[in-house]
Design a protein around this nucleic acid. Structure first.
Lengths: 342, 342
DNA sequence: CTGAAAGCGCTAACAT
DNA sequence: ATGTTAGCGCTTTCAG
């Protein structure tokens, strides 16, 4: 259990002072080449490592980014985090991850510990139920860059990086209509989250633009799980006049729908078309493969991290929303009248 | 952009000293109830938050766990991390995640920054190519608990939490044999990683115990990707005497195998059986669903974190290996002679 | 070009 | 029950 080497130790050994060591290690111009070289060599030899806790205390902040997401083990978020970590690493930053489990209290607790640990910035995707943004405001009040991605608050003056959910949903539903589906149901998420509201609006717009009627009973709010998708589809298909297509705000519930329909021998896409949302990894592996809307998680992560670094460098705060255009991915589950091998 | 409140501020306001504030906030017994209450109230009112950077500097370590994994956006690792974060959160700890991309240099760099940031412990799953463990030894030498999970070094005296890969593989291959498959190929991973070596041994043992011959050309080392699985299966099926089953050390290559066979209209499981490894989320969604071996990532994560906390509390270091028993999950891809609806 | 000294915020050993 | 003091390791202003 070796003792940690400090700049004091190096200073003593070179018969100089900590300040010189520190400066040399940072290539301070006012230190002679010779000294700089000597210091760096000794540092390497003694296996010196900065104590970044000490630096952070001095500097008032650390080279760390905090990330708060509802859960880590979801394709989309895992990709986002991976993207964030990539960019952070390139910039010599660490990433602290926190999962909120969609619970407001956990979010608040995480905010507090992140502030306590002196993070240089916080990237957040909100939980389902978060409607009070005051806890997040504390972050910005302390001058810590705060960036929302994916699930962002609607009205707050903040930096948001989101998908154009409305456009994504519009594309999806328009595609279904073009494939000849007429009675398209929508499984939507809680509308306190803008992204679900947007998806619903995209759905509505597409129907209206095509001159199709909107039926309230075909629009069902749910918790985006596979089970819910299964159960809702069961219910929908028992209507006297059941839908001939389902557009879901979540791939998971789209999968649930698919499983129910398969169980009931209702043919997808011949009898019922399905389009999900998110391009979860599994969607290209179902039988038939699920059409969906891709949100390119890794890119969102990278982009969010980049915006953070920009923000850190800049000294003016400009609230802004960066909207990335999602991509419709057409697979078999919505390709009516197409012959594809099984 | 408000200034941060410190214990000095609180002390001044209550006309006392920082030590009293500190003690009160920590429920030190030598502080009067009245004072403790007063302090806590003021702290809340002024929105005080510890500066854990300062505490960490004092204490010589922070309430942070470092985690190094090859990549975050893989079901298994995302689950492990999620499990780690759960337990860490319960204990008031933060989690810094680092991805190595299976690159040794990145691992080393992450080790250095983790040590620099004064993490209380490090949990690691090694990259493919890591054969030199010296960089990791530095962690233990500093008295920082180091725990390997999943991909652990073979000979080092360390704490390891691994699956019983041999037993898992054995179960898988035995199952294939029981289903009547006779010529079982094995797509194996690089054998410098014990877990792949173990899986191969389980495969070999199962063949031997069943009195089946071992054919070297049916054992192919690969990089565990879907593409590799696809290509290798293509090659295998062109043999004069092709295999009638495939046991892969990875679900991804098992999937590749499945896709190739489907393309070629070779029936799974009737003509060729497949069993993968890891129980990736997608395996229950393929057509047919993939049999696989479950490694319960979330539990490994939780368990690793628990072991870390034990280790931190204890003052003797006992190298040990904790072996969790994986579970064979039989799905359609290996159920020969079974009639299941499509 | 280098040194001296102060201080980031917190905690704990040592007073009182 | 509370105050005093020192110091964790680093950086940086000020001085030389």
């Amino acid at each position: 259990m070796g003792k940690r080497v400090t700049i004091q130790d190096l200073a003593k050994e070179l018969d100089t002072t900590p300040s010189t060591i520190s400066r040399a290690l940072h290539d301070h111009p006012g230190i002679s080449k010779t000294m700089t070289k000597k210091v760096k060599e000794l540092a390497k030899k003694r296996n010196y490592r900065v104590n970044s806790v000490a630096s952070s205390l001095r500097a008032g902040k650390s080279k760390t980014i905090g990330v708060i997401v509802p859960m880590i083990n979801r394709d989309f978020f895992a990709n986002v985090i991976s993207g964030i970590e990539d960019v952070a690493f390139q910039n010599g930053f660490n990433v602290i991850i926190c999962q909120s489990d969609n619970k407001v209290e956990k979010e608040i607790q995480h905010i507090n510990t992140l502030i306590s640990s002196g993070v240089a910035g916080v990237l957040v995707s909100l939980g389902f139920d978060t409607t009070d943004y005051a806890p997040f405001n504390k972050i910005s009040q302390l001058g810590i860059p705060l960036i929302f991605f994916d699930r962002a608050p609607e009205h707050e003056k903040s930096i948001k990086i989101v998908n154009n959910d409305k456009a994504g949903a519009y594309k999806a539903v328009k595609h279904l209509i073009e494939m000849g589906y007429q009675r398209i149901a929508h499984l939507c998420g809680p509308s306190n989250l803008p992204l679900y509201k947007e998806r619903k609006e995209g759905y509505l717009d597409a129907l209206r633009d095509a001159g199709l009627p909107v039926e309230e009973r075909l629009i069902i709010t749910h918790n985006l799980t596979r089970e819910a998708g299964y159960n809702i589809t069961k219910k929908l298909m028992k209507y006297k006049n059941p839908p001939d297509a389902i557009f879901s705000a979540s791939d998971y519930s789209a999968l649930g729908a698919l499983l129910y329909l398969k169980e009931e021998r209702i043919k997808v896409p011949e009898e019922v078309g399905i389009v999900g949302f998110s391009n979860e990894g599994f969607t290209k592996l179902t039988g038939p493969e699920l059409s969906t809307v891709d949100q390119h998680g890794k890119e969102i992560g990278k982009y969010s991290a980049k915006v953070f670094f920009e923000e850190m460098a800049s000294d003016v705060f400009i609230p802004r929303t960066i909207i990335l255009d999602p991509k419709l991915i057409v697979r078999r589950s919505s390709l009516r009248n197409q012959k594809l091998s099984d």
